[in-house]
């Protein structure tokens, strides 16, 4: 397969969550999201009650993918930052380490300058974190061991059939 699957354990998830909480607070943002480049939501911070997070994740990834396509047509490697300005809310989208997308939604209580500054700091931390996750996954693959008990080893046809009842 082209990409390896993204496997996340409790420990790493907590570190990511902490980073997002910190960013949410320091950037005075409404909501902060971390999305996989393929459109799957990884984590969020802030009040996500009124937001359809799954759809938002998939559309953000589509947005980044389309922008990446445009970049390549123009001979650029990638546009790493997207910014959409709305009447009340604004959205700042940035690509981290070619792998995940950081989304910050903010209103007039914050500013683009502040968001950019804080995002930059968070990006550095998250890049290192995801490097760790990737190297851990590669190590496991090489050694054939698993850090946690796999939920799939015992999957049966019956389990799968039950999903479709």
């Amino acid at each position: 397969m082209a990409d390896s699957d993204l496997v996340m354990y409790e420990n790493e998830f907590q570190r990511i969550d902490e980073e997002l909480q910190k960013l949410h607070q320091q950037a005075n943002a409404t909501v902060v999201f971390l999305v996989d480049k393929n459109g799957q939501l990884i984590a969020s911070a802030g009040d996500t009650h009124d937001i359809d997070t799954t759809s938002l994740a998939s559309l953000t990834a589509g947005n980044i993918a389309a922008t990446g396509g445009i970049a390549r047509l123009l001979g650029q490697k990638e546009f790493t930052i997207l910014f959409h300005e709305g009447e009340k809310d604004n959205i700042h989208i940035s690509l981290i380490g070619q792998r995940v997308i950081l989304v910050v939604i903010f209103d007039k209580r914050s500013s683009l300058g502040l968001v950019r500054l804080r995002v930059k700091k968070t990006s550095e931390v998250l890049t290192r974190l995801f490097d760790d996750i990737t190297s851990k996954a590669e190590k496991e693959k090489r050694e054939g061991g698993k850090a946690a008990e796999s939920p799939f080893a015992e999957i049966s046809d019956e389990d799968i059939d039950n999903l479709f009842k």
Binding site: M1, A2, D3, S4, D5, L6, V7, M8, Y9, E10, F13, Q14, D36, N38, G39, Q40, I42, A148, P151
Partner: peptide, 15 residues
């Protein structure tokens, strides 16, 4: 590329 999250106990797959 599936996303397996042991923390929230979720598996996400794309078809």
């Amino acid at each position: 590329m599936s996303f397996i999250n042991y923390s929230s106990r979720e598996i996400n797959c794309k078809i």
